[in-house]
């Protein structure tokens, strides 16, 4: 038989299926509207990253391991940081200050919106990576304890 996820209770699985898209969409909304409303990149990124806990509740460590790539998340964090620094440095190369608005001068549109999105991407990838590591430690502990119990029984 093919190895599938450990059977969790149907209530937590259905709840995670229901709330997972809502959590992702609400987090992206907070990131994208950071320029006009309370919130911003960091808070919205953490909201999106919390979706991994719903995956863990619904499908266990197997689901987390098979739906997220930890190395890609860690490198995309660096990519987001480079995006932030490049967008901020273009202001220096156009003869203005660091982090200054340079494209749409005099309009209600700001280049710091792009920097806000970069920070949101960065926090999203970083906190997801952190949660994956913590959940993997939890899974290891559980495996070891079950093994110990089996050894004791043997």
């Amino acid at each position: 038989m093919k190895k599938t996820y450990k059977k969790t209770s149907i209530i937590s699985r259905c709840a995670s299926d229901l709330f997972l898209p809502l959590a992702c969409v609400f987090g992206c909304y907070v990131v994208l509207h950071g320029s006009t409303s309370p919130g911003g990149g960091f808070q919205g990124g953490v909201l999106v990253a919390s979706a991994i806990l719903l995956v863990y509740l619904g499908y266990g460590g197997w689901g987390v391991k098979h739906s997220f790539n930890e190395h890609m998340l860690h490198s995309s964090e660096t990519v987001a940081e480079i995006m932030y620094v490049v967008i901020a440095l273009v202001g220096v190369f156009t003869g203005l200050n660091f982090c200054v608005n340079f494209v749409f001068a005099g309009q209600q549109v700001d280049t710091s919106i792009l920097m806000n999105d970069a920070v949101g991407y960065h926090v999203m990838a970083g906190i997801t990576c952190l949660l994956i590591m913590m959940l993997s430690v939890l899974e290891d502990d559980r495996d070891e304890t079950t093994k110990d119990k089996e050894e004791d029984a043997a």
């Binding site: 950071g34 320029s35 006009t36 409303s37 309370p38 911003g40 964090e77 660096t78 987001a80 940081e81 932030y84 620094v85 901020a88 660091f98 982090c99 200054v100 608005n101 749409f104 001068a105 005099g106 309009q107 209600q108 549109v109 700001d110 710091s112 920097m115 806000n116 920070v119 960065h122 926090v123 970083g126």
Partner: peptide
């Protein structure tokens, strides 16, 4: 100075842009 209609946002990403950058480096 910044053409941003939210003062908190413009402080975080324009006036104190270096601060936000260091914050993300700390997270990394």
């Amino acid at each position: 100075k910044t053409a941003a209609d939210n003062v908190v946002f413009s402080v975080v990403f324009n006036f104190r842009g270096y601060d936000t950058m260091g914050e993300s480096f700390i997270l990394i």
